[in-house]
């Protein structure tokens, strides 16, 4: 789905990361992990085409990213940014309908309204229909934007795999919505698509991500299947904390607990 080769990016003279190469396959959730300032968000911006890499290239669905026409690209990939600032008093459903922008020629069709309804239902916010966006809390706004990006990639056939980029989607959310957000991403990927997620919470990565890419000091420290990569050693080296795996009682599931060194 996405092939990155020898990607480097620098803000002026400051290199953010250099020489990153990796693949992201159709049908997997890949989490990008790393401490603050490791270049996770910048990497995400390069992968979704916001920023042009200083060198190297990104191939998206078999075609170099910069050769994609914006509208065609938007029909295949959606991006949920860390925080969206929208100071204008739209209704909730109008914000979600904006996700349909790349699919529309004239006005909205009834099918777009239905998709908007379904997407709001998926994030558990259908009862907010008609509310003013500006009256919502941070977490509620975040879920509205999740519905918007879901609406953007709604019912795209699996032969045209698409990619959902989520940049720290759980930052404003309570515990149960953190899980439900990642479950929404899993359901999306299960239909034959892909999702790339920047995460901080190692446990969420363990539970939901198929593979992880660990960034550290502008390099890929390690990448591979989540459980194999996230060893206590790696966590100590990259994040500077001591990690212990604890078995959840009654289940064959492990959780990672961290303490300071």
């Amino acid at each position: 789905m996405i092939k990155a080769s020898q990607l480097s990016y620098a803000y002026g003279p400051c290199p953010i990361f250099s020489d990153l190469s990796f693949h992201i396959n159709v049908g997997e959730i890949v989490a990008i992990l790393g401490p603050n300032g490791a270049g996770k968000t910048t990497l995400m911006k390069v992968l979704c085409g916001d920023l042009l890499p200083t060198s190297g290239q990104v191939v998206f669905a078999g075609k170099p990213l910069r050769k994609w026409e914006p509208r065609k690209l938007a029909q295949r990939r959606a991006v949920l940014p860390q925080a969206s600032t929208l100071d204008f008093a739209f209704n909730v459903e109008e914000v979600v309908l904006m996700g349909r922008t790349p699919h529309l020629q004239g006005g909205e069709r009834p099918v777009d309204m239905q998709i908007c309804r379904d997407a709001l239902q998926r994030v558990d916010m259908l009862n907010y229909w008609g509310r003013l966006y500006t009256t919502l809390s941070g977490g509620e706004r975040q879920r509205i934007h999740l519905a918007r990006v879901l609406a953007q990639l709604w019912e795209i056939p699996a032969e045209m795999p698409s990619c959902l980029f989520l940049d720290e989607p759980t930052s404003n959310l309570d515990l149960s919505h953190q899980h439900s957000t990642l479950k929404v991403a899993s359901e999306f990927v299960a239909k034959g698509h892909t999702s790339v997620i920047v995460l901080h919470d190692l446990n969420l990565a363990l539970k939901h991500a198929d593979r992880v890419i660990v960034l550290h000091r502008g390099k890929i420290h390690d990448q591979g299947p989540t459980a194999e990569v996230l060893t206590p050693d790696l966590i100590e080296n990259v994040f500077g904390v001591k990690a212990h795996y604890v078995r959840i009682p009654g289940q064959n599931v492990y959780s990672v607990v961290t303490t300071s060194l």
Binding site: K45, C48, G49, D50, P70, R71, K72, L73, A74, Q75, R77, A78, V79, P81, S84, T85, L86, F88, F90, V95, M98, G99, T101, P102, L104, Q152
Partner: peptide, 20 residues
């Protein structure tokens, strides 16, 4: 419609397929 997308932000407008 492009201006509506701009209200979300320039990056977001580009994500929605607007040639910003």
């Amino acid at each position: 419609r492009a201006l509506n997308a701009f209200l979300l932000g320039e990056s977001e407008a580009w994500h929605l397929g607007i040639n910003v």
